[in-house]
């Protein structure tokens, strides 16, 4: 391998300070390396939590199911946290889908019972949240947007589950399942993720993200 030729040019490349107060949307939409890697890490960590939840959810939700069929999905919002959380942290287009699918992948690799289908479920759930952030052109990260995103993610999950696993279910079961999934998504994944990001910002872990700086400044 030949050495890369380097000549010191006569002109000096100056990197003067640029202090634009607001970068244009195009710039803000571009993923930095740290966005990609931290989004991945969050996806992986939450994937572990999903897997842990997989091990316990059947006994945990059985009483609910017995009380009112379809009600078990009131706890399923836990499976929706990754997408909303990831998007709230890195604030980039596609983050909700990316992080939710990745969490599902980890869950699948660890041995979740649905194997590759976990990924498909993750995609549909992430898509729900993603669409809400898209409607707000990735510029609004307030709590009500997070709650809407969580609800939309829950709707995605309900549609997916009712198609895949409960295709023959009665109207009553399907409605109860869907309503509970949406509520659970809104509360656990929406409000829950928003609170989580605020707590994370206080630890300084999000200092390289606008989400960490704005939340820290609000304190």
């Amino acid at each position: 391998m030949k050495p890369v030729p380097f000549t010191v040019k006569g002109t000096i490349v100056t990197t003067t300070s640029i202090s634009s107060t607001r970068s244009p949307l195009r710039l803000r939409a571009k993923w930095r390396v740290v966005d990609i890697v931290v989004a991945s890490v969050v996806g992986v960590a939450i994937g572990l939590v999903y897997f842990a939840w997989d091990q316990v959810y059947v006994p945990a939700t059985a009483p609910l199911e017995a009380a009112l069929p379809g009600l078990q999905s009131i706890t399923y919002g836990i499976w929706l946290v990754a997408g909303v959380l990831g998007a709230l942290i890195v604030r980039k287009p596609g983050a909700a889908i990316f992080v939710e699918v990745l969490a599902a992948t980890v869950e699948g690799l660890l041995g979740a019972k649905w194997g590759l289908l976990t990924l498909e479920g993750g995609f549909v759930q992430g898509l729900g949240a993603e669409l809400v952030f898209l409607v707000f052109v990735y510029a609004n990260w307030r709590v009500f947007v997070a709650v809407l995103a969580g609800a939309a993610s829950g709707l995605g999950m309900a549609v997916n589950d009712l198609t895949l696993w409960y295709a023959g279910a009665s109207q009553g079961f399907a409605s109860a399942y869907a309503i509970c999934a949406v509520v659970s998504g809104a509360v656990i994944a929406g409000l829950g993720s928003w609170l989580l990001v605020r707590a994370l910002a206080r630890t300084g872990a999000l200092s390289r993200f606008a989400s960490g700086r704005s939340a820290a400044a609000a304190n």
């Binding site: 890369v4 380097f6 000096i12 490349v13 640029i18 970068s23 930095r32």
Partner: peptide, 25 residues
């Protein structure tokens, strides 16, 4: 990082080039 990460002043050069342009060097 870029403007998202902070503000720079003055100049810093490696072989006469900005560090981001000298990746791999």
């Amino acid at each position: 990082g870029g403007d998202d990460d902070g503000e720079r002043r003055g100049e810093l050069l490696i072989d006469g080039r900005a560090p981001d342009a000298a990746r791999g060097r």
